[in-house]
Amino acid sequence: MELIERYVHEVGRRLPKRQRADVEAELRSLLLDALEARAGATPAESAPSEADQIAVLVEFGPPAEVAARYAPQPRYVIGPRLFDTYCLVVGIVLGALALAMVVATVVGQLSAPDGEISLLAFFAQFILQYINAAAAGLGFTTLVFFILERTLPEEDLVSLTDREQWDPRTLPPLEDPNRIQPVELIVAICFILLALVLFNFFPGKIGLAYLQSGAGEATGWHVIPVFSEQALAAYLPLWNIIWVLTLALDLVLLRQGRWRLGTRLADLGIVLGSIYVLVRMITGPALFSAPSWWLDLMPDLKETLTFMPNLAELVRMALLVALAITIFDGGKKALALLRARG
């Protein structure tokens, strides 16, 4: 009978204490009934054979499975009743954390003691801290829902998914994929005009601004141009073509009020053009070159500009990111075109 006892114990130790003794007693009695039936003609006094015990226990099933049936604990972290609410809260938590982290990182960078602002350090710090904060936020949210899942009474859960309060009229309207957003277009047109004017007429103003302290004529804000003349000469004409074409397309869209096949094709063509120019910029001459005469002219800037050598690399990374975004955008537009045709 040793196997039977071992089995009963294995099931029992997986059960809550308050029902353990009772279930063990019942299980033992039931196992003996089954054994007796199996032994059949065997006189009741003789001990059941090990083979019979094994056969009966195999029929009952593994202890963990049987125990789980006696004391059903949810075998999941968050059940279907709370899952939608959980997803909503996770979204809010992750979004709020991102916002808080952006503010914290910007403030931290601005108030850094040596006054250096490095984009690379900024992004690296932000990403690392966000991963940490997001993991903690996700963990705590999951923990709270884990506890709610196991403590909220059934009635409270029902009220979370009250069907009677649901009104079909609150369903959001279907989005028309061909409708344009005039506000977006107007904002885009403003930015394109700004870029055209800025890059063509005031290229010297695009750069690093710094405040010269101390006495003398040099005191005040100064700007170091970021783009080399060579880069401007190589790429600006190409960008001008793309910007003007985009401007024309935006004006046509604003007039027509809807996307059509022609405008979609034109849009895709412009994206392809942008990809071409970006690839040329990544592979071509460097956008930025730090002429040594700046540093000779302004020796006190040397310390502030210690990150300059990395700038070319940083610009290249930014261009790669821009390229990836543009390709993704192009893919989306191509898909929209196919859907609009199909």
């Binding site: 029929e59 099933g61 049936r69």
Partner: peptide
Amino acid sequence: DQGTLYPLLR
């Protein structure tokens, strides 16, 4: 199945 019936009774 016995493993189903007995817990169901409880």
